[in-house]
């Protein structure tokens, strides 16, 4: 199984702080990888670098096996990579459909389209399908998302990302602010997305969520990958130990081994 997205030795320094210090990362199509690490371990920075939100000082990003540079989120979008930001990045006064298609509006055919008129009907239909496909709870397609609950907004942001991503989705702490039921919805959604062959990377501080939904866990510490585990072969204790540095770094051989095992099981 080849990685759809791979990072080799990414480094990025902010002043004296090495946010990324030779970080590696890889994910295969349809795989769910949890990215964990203590605060300041470089999780968000890594996701930003991989989603076109941050330039790196050195290192290489490979997409479907070939080296790429991703300079803007739009470029990432064009490659089929979408990100759900922690703040969700929704426009609160727009409705779910308008948010889903913001910047990618479907225009009316012919002259009307050239004059800037949008095809609201087809956008609404497409959005409805996208929400249905994820089983997302959206109370109204015409109410502003700002009037909706946190869980609903989360669902809309995820549905938007999934609708446009056909390769990789990044989720930055998708369950951080949610109740039990909404969290379950998000975790179900992650599974459903990966079943469609899309790779899902999610950052989380919640070990139970990580254990529940991921195929593999990558542990970051001090800006580099210190361990990667197959979820079914690890335990919360082991993950926490790796995060805090209580166990030594796993060697590249361990990493290769873990991936080889995964291939066998797949």
């Amino acid at each position: 199984m080849t990685a759809i997205l791979e990072a080799r030795g990414l480094s990025r320094q902010f002043g004296q702080v090495k946010a990324l210090d030779g970080a590696d990362f890889d994910i295969a199509a349809g795989e769910v990888v949890a990215l964990i690490g203590d605060n300041g371990a470089g999780k968000s920075t890594l996701v930003k670098a991989l989603s076109g939100n941050l330039a790196v000082d050195s290192g290489q990003i490979l997409f479907e096996g070939s080296p790429v540079t991703i300079e803007t989120p739009m470029q990432a979008s064009a490659m089929g990579i979408e990100t759900v930001y922690q703040d969700l990045a929704l426009a609160p006064h727009l409705d779910p459909v308008q948010n889903m298609f913001l910047g990618r509006e479907v225009m009316r055919p012919g002259l009307l389209g050239a004059l800037g008129f949008m095809d609201n009907k087809s956008m609404r239909g497409e959005a409805q399908q996208a929400f249905d496909k994820l089983g997302a709870t959206v109370r109204s397609l015409t109410a502003p998302v700002g009037a909706m609950s946190g869980g609903q907004r989360q669902a809309i942001a995820i549905a938007r990302a999934v609708h446009w991503a056909n390769k990789v989705v990044f989720l930055d702490e998708p369950t951080a602010a949610l109740g039990v039921r909404q969290t379950k919805n998000v975790l179900d959604t992650i599974r459903r997305v990966s079943e469609q062959g899309v790779a899902v990377v999610f950052i989380s501080h919640s070990m139970p969520h990580v254990m529940e939904v991921s195929d593999r866990v990558e542990v970051l510490r001090l800006g580099r990958r210190v361990a990667t585990y197959r979820t079914q072969d690890t335990s919360m204790e082991q993950l926490v130990a790796a995060m805090t540095g209580a166990v030594g770094e796993s060697t590249p051989a361990d990493v290769a081994e873990a991936r080889a095992e995964k291939e066998v099981s797949a």
Partner: peptide, 27 residues
Amino acid sequence: IVLHYTRFGRFTYAIGSNEESARRVGV
């Protein structure tokens, strides 16, 4: 008409609503 039915109008609302999110989706 421009404000309520065209993409120009949609962008106008989006920028006033959340400039950063508009920027991120390529507006």
